[in-house]
């Protein structure tokens, strides 16, 4: 992993590490239910213990997402979300908080705007970089060039099925952290954290990753605590989306506070 001082995601994780804990990374889909709520909700997460904010671009064919996130993104698109608005959201958040803001996106919307243009505007909006669930380093030449040019983080995924050879390549291609998929599956809350998660994190560290964060299926403070013991960060999505859906920003704040109580490394 290239360690550049410009990596906002790395800096956020390191701040948490210096405080003796794992970073908490919270996901919300953009425009659910509208743009202003996304900004308010992201700020609420930041004020209640989230170190990195991950904003997803709603997409018509989200193959890595389970029902809760699918429903939220369908709603966002119905409510008129367009890709352009992602930059307003990122700027709206970064202008009001120090938390790093990453955009999670399937690749086609980026390709259609133009990879370099997307990178330029994300940088301009103060974004940290991209998490790319359906872009592997093998296909990422244009993104690697653009993210280098604008100093953006490249968060690729690694999975329990990732071979040692690919682990090495993916860790090398990443900047900020590598996203360790905890389980062979899609997003959605699960009652137990798979034992595979630890093996993926160990493999990533072994391949030279300075920061590996675990996502998929994490929904409780107890699970956060379990993962914080060995990973550099914990990513929560579905549970936060459900909280926002059912109880608005207030419920989201409550859950965030609760989750952040599990990040201690002790």
């Amino acid at each position: 992993m290239t360690t550049q001082t410009t990596s906002k995601a790395a800096a956020a994780i390191d701040r948490a590490r210096d405080a003796g804990r794992a970073a908490l990374i919270g996901y919300l889909p953009a425009g659910f239910p509208d743009v202003q709520t996304t900004i308010d909700a992201a700020l609420a997460m930041a004020n209640n213990g989230v170190d990195l904010i991950e904003i997803g671009i709603p997409y018509s064919d989200p193959v890595m997402d389970g029902q809760v996130i699918q429903d939220a993104t369908v709603q966002a698109l119905k409510n008129g979300f367009t890709v352009e608005r992602i930059f307003d959201i990122v700027e709206g958040i970064t202008s009001q908080t120090d938390a790093a803001v990453l955009v999670m996106t399937y690749w086609n919307p980026v390709m259609q705007l133009g990879v370099r243009e997307f990178a330029r505007r994300l940088h301009e909006a103060g974004g940290a970089g991209l998490i790319t669930p359906d872009l592997i380093p093998d296909e990422a030449g244009a993104w690697i060039a653009a993210s280098d040019e604008f100093g953006l983080d490249r968060i690729f995924l690694v999975a329990p099925s990732t071979s040692p050879e690919r682990m090495e390549r993916t860790v090398k291609a990443s900047r900020g952290f590598v996203y360790a998929v905890s389980i062979m599956g899609i997003t959605g809350a699960r009652t137990a954290v798979s034992s595979a998660a630890r093996a993926v994190v160990d493999a990533a560290h072994g391949a030279g990753a300075e920061r590996a964060c675990v996502g998929l299926g994490v929904s409780t403070a107890a699970q956060v605590k379990e993962i914080a013991a060995y990973a550099d960060g914990v990513i929560v999505g579905t549970a936060l989306v459900a909280a926002l859906r059912d109880g608005g920003v207030e419920a989201l704040s409550e859950l965030t506070k609760d989750l952040s109580s599990g990040t201690g490394k002790s």
Binding site: W107, P133, D134, M184
Partner: peptide, 8 residues
């Protein structure tokens, strides 16, 4: 253009 989980 696929999730890493399926590459193996």
């Amino acid at each position: 253009w696929m999730p890493e989980s399926l590459i193996a």
